[in-house]
């Protein structure tokens, strides 16, 4: 007798990812799809992808999806959720999308306590456009627009978006995780599950920030990229629960 331990997630389409080797998006897509399947909410979930590397996320998630303009996912999700309060609405956004051009939409959605879930993939770089500085690029980190590394005086400081969201009155659950090791991947899945459950139980705004590798633009091997998160990014953006007022999950 055999027992199946691993299979294609129900809510991922059977198509190959276009992401670069070692990119965190592939892992995070899978985690989100697994969580949707395990919570059995695929038939009532609507996703909102960003502009950025994950712009084609609707080609992978097998749920209803509506594209948003760059940075506007929180606003689009707000419109969806208010019209369809019993559906599960999530956004999937990169750091440029959520923490630069979409800062206003994100903060106000959190502060209104919109009952939505946001997946915030932080790889510290504008991947799709070729590796420019992101709001989350850490000090000293190289990018095509921070030659010699990000300098606070010249380029401004990195933005701690999740901490900012943590002090909004409307946010219910915010956690920062990473996908650079099996242990962190498991933690990420747990956090995503909790985020979706927060929404399912109507407790308000939830967000999981996920530190994710971008070996291509970081100009590293996938293994080195994972190590770099451990040694550089995670110390800068500590992995932790930032806000949690969720009960009975």
């Amino acid at each position: 007798m055999t027992t199946q331990l691993f299979s294609w997630p129900r809510y991922l389409k059977k198509t190959a990812f276009h992401y670069c080797p070692g990119c965190g998006h592939s892992i995070i897509h899978r985690l989100v799809a697994e969580v949707i399947g395990e919570l059995d909410i695929g038939a009532k979930t609507i996703g909102v992808p960003p502009a950025g590397c994950a712009v084609l996320a609707y080609n992978y998630f097998d749920v209803d999806m509506v594209e948003a303009a760059h940075g506007r996912a929180a606003a689009v999700a707000t419109g969806l959720k208010r019209v369809l309060p019993d559906r599960i609405i999530f956004t999937y956004q990169g750091d440029g999308d959520i923490a630069a051009i979409g800062t206003a939409e994100t903060i106000h959605a959190a502060n209104r306590g919109e009952n939505i879930t946001m997946v915030f993939v932080n790889n510290g770089v504008y991947g799709m456009t070729g590796g420019q500085m992101a709001p989350t690029t850490i000090l000293g980190q190289n990018s095509t627009t921070t030659p010699g590394g990000r300098d606070q005086k010249r380029d401004g400081a990195p933005l701690d978006l999740s901490e900012m969201l943590g002090i909004t009155r409307g946010a219910a659950y915010i956690e920062r995780t990473a996908v650079n090791s099996p242990k962190n991947i498991r933690r990420t899945k747990k956090a995503l599950t909790k985020a979706f459950k927060t929404q399912m139980t109507g407790q308000g705004f939830s967000l999981v920030e996920i530190l994710s590798p971008c070996p291509t633009n970081w100009k590293m091997t996938p293994v080195d990229a994972c190590k770099w998160i451990e040694g550089s990014t995670a110390p800068f953006y500590p992995l932790k629960v930032i806000k949690d007022i969720v009960t009975n999950i």
Binding site: I46, V48, V66, A68, A69, R72, A74, A75, V76, A77, T78, G79, L80, K81, R82, V83, L84, A104, E105, I107, H108, R112
Partner: peptide
């Protein structure tokens, strides 16, 4: 009915986009 005083015109039109995608007259 839903009324939202949005944080910006950008947010407002994109909220309308979401509501419209959900089938609502917005």
């Amino acid at each position: 009915g839903t009324f939202i005083q949005a944080e910006s015109e950008l947010a407002a039109i994109n909220m309308v986009l979401g509501a419209s995608a959900a089938g609502c007259r917005a």
